[in-house]
Simulated scan of single mutants.
Amino acid sequence: MERIIAVFRKYPIIPSMMTYSVLYPSANFVQQKYFRKYKPGEEKIDWQEIKRFCIYGGLIHAPLVYNWLRTAARLFPKTTMSHLLAKVALDQTLFAPVGLSSFYIGLSVLEGKDSQGVYDEWREKLPNTWATGMCIWPFLTFLNFWLVPARLRTIFVGFCGFFWFTFLSYLKIRPDGFTPPVVLLYNKYINQSNFSQIITNTRYYIVKFIIH
């Protein structure tokens, strides 16, 4: 056991890959079991799909996340607020679209889709998935770089992302698009009919704050 722990400490990417090879297929299983709608007579669990999630999670996504977290920590090694915010900003603007593209492209290739099919799914689903992730991951990324030891950061992302993986699994098999939360909020609160009223109220409270 001590020898295994020593290997894991020396090569932290190994436990990260092992963790993702369990979390990804588990999330897909949960999605299939509890959230997917089946037609009458259709098989309940697609084990080939679960196998693809296992391969992708362990061999592709885990190394991708691991190397990104190391790179971000090297670029901004301090735990000051400026460095933490810089890492969060880079994570959401640079890594997030790469990671999500890897997810859709990687699994589509494993499914055997042709290049046009891979591109169509990526183009259709990436923007809204990215927008949804912007509502979730900045806070978790901040905590990860602030509180979690470097060797455990990939695993932390994996465990925090279990429900995110389940959501991605749902989006992967969804034939139509979906509306991300930020768009719903925009349509509800910042549409053309009440945008001017929001600006007016904002100005009023700012002036009131300055006067007092």
Rank of each mutant, 00 (worst) to 15 (best):
residue 2 E to M: 06
residue 2 E to A: 15
residue 13 I to D: 02
residue 18 M to D: 00
residue 21 S to Y: 08
residue 21 S to L: 06
residue 22 V to M: 12
residue 23 L to N: 01
residue 24 Y to C: 01
residue 28 N to S: 14
residue 28 N to R: 00
residue 29 F to D: 01
residue 32 Q to E: 11
residue 35 F to N: 03
residue 35 F to Q: 04
residue 36 R to W: 05
residue 37 K to E: 15
residue 37 K to Y: 12
residue 41 G to A: 09
residue 44 K to H: 15
residue 45 I to H: 05
residue 49 E to P: 00
residue 54 C to F: 10
residue 54 C to V: 03
residue 56 Y to E: 03
residue 79 T to A: 13
residue 87 K to D: 10
residue 91 D to P: 06
residue 96 A to M: 06
residue 110 L to S: 02
residue 113 K to Q: 12
residue 119 Y to E: 04
residue 120 D to P: 01
residue 122 W to S: 03
residue 127 P to Y: 05
residue 129 T to K: 01
residue 130 W to I: 14
residue 131 A to V: 12
residue 134 M to A: 11
residue 136 I to D: 03
residue 138 P to V: 14
residue 139 F to S: 14
residue 145 F to C: 02
residue 147 L to W: 10
residue 147 L to P: 00
residue 160 C to M: 14
residue 166 T to Y: 06
residue 167 F to G: 13
residue 168 L to S: 09
residue 172 K to Q: 15
residue 174 R to G: 01
residue 175 P to T: 12
residue 176 D to P: 00
residue 178 F to C: 03
residue 178 F to A: 03
residue 183 V to A: 09
residue 183 V to H: 09
residue 185 L to D: 05
residue 187 N to Q: 13
residue 189 Y to L: 11
residue 190 I to W: 14
residue 190 I to R: 09
residue 190 I to P: 03
residue 192 Q to D: 10
residue 202 T to R: 13
residue 211 I to T: 07
